[in-house]
Each structure stands twice: as C-alpha cells, then as structure tokens.
C-alpha cells in the first residue's frame, strides 16, 4: 500500500511587513530580545488594541470601585503576568471579546501589556537558543 501524495507549494510574494511602530511610552525597560512593537492603545472609536494571544497582561493596580465584574476579575487574575489566551480561558470569553475588555483596561491605565516576540525576517538566534535551552530542561 502506498500513501496518498501531495505536491509542495512555493512561497507567495507577500507585501513587505509594515515598519515597526514606536514603542508606547510606558516606562517599561526594554526586553532583551527584539520584538514586534504594537500600538497598545485604544483607538478613538473604541477599536481594540493590537493584542496577541500571547501578549502578557499585568495589573497596575487593584480594581477601582467603578470596575465592572469582568474588569475586576482581570485585575485580580493579573497580579502576576498572564497571557490574553489564559485570561480568555479563565474568564470563558472568546479571544476578540477579551481583547475589547483588555483594551479598555489599557486605556484607563489599569493594566500594562507586554508585547510578544514574533518571528522576524532576520531571525534572532539568541532567542532560538534560549528556547532550546528551556526545552532541554523539560
């Protein structure tokens, strides 16, 4: 018996990635690795911030009296850093609903967002080596 066969595909010409955006003035020390820099801010019309599944969210303060129950839950959960994906799982909210909620908390400066490191056109070998070392210890 022979397995079914596939035909390899070629990379498509994709438009070049947009230039990096300036880092939000956040007083946050620069991470060791290069990263894609997101605009972390609510837009005027209330659009969602560019949050990734693995953007880490950290509370800046406890819930103010004005916080909704969902917001209070996020602020309590994020006393230690937690990814948007984990928040979405714990609060049982779909990812996009979660990002709307978090965007509001970023805008009101109740949480801080730590952007992920994404695959680069010029790959960061030290990052890859760090991941390998971490996996090796598993």
């Amino acid at each position: 018996m022979t397995p079914p066969r596939r035909k390899r595909r070629q990379p498509q010409q994709l438009p070049p990635p947009p230039p990096p955006l300036p880092k939000p003035a956040d007083g946050e020390e620069n991470p060791r690795y290069p990263e894609r820099l997101y605009t972390i801010a609510g837009t005027a019309d209330g659009g969602r911030a560019e949050l990734d599944l693995v953007t880490l969210i950290v509370s800046r303060s406890g819930p103010p009296p004005s916080a909704s129950p969902e917001e209070a839950a996020v602020l309590r959960l994020c006393t230690a850093p937690l990814s948007v994906a984990e928040l979405s799982a714990y609060l049982n909210l779909p990812f996009s609903a979660m990002t709307v909620l978090i965007t509001e908390l970023i805008t009101t400066e109740l949480v801080q967002a730590r952007a992920p490191i994404v695959r680069q056109s010029v790959p960061d070998r030290s990052l890859l080596e760090a991941v390998m070392h971490g996996l090796q210890r598993l």
């Binding site: 991470p31 690795y33 880490l56 839950a73 309590r76 959960l77």
Partner: peptide
C-alpha cells in the same frame, strides 16, 4: 472566577512570550 493555581503563576519578571 478560578484563576491559575499559585504554583502556576508566572514570575513578575516575565517580559515576553513566543508561540
């Protein structure tokens, strides 16, 4: 709302994530 167990908390130094 159940969150992570205490032993599952990431350290505060956790700066960025990859996937």
């Amino acid at each position: 709302i159940p969150g992570p167990r205490t032993e599952d908390h990431l350290p505060h130094t956790a700066q960025s994530a990859v996937k």
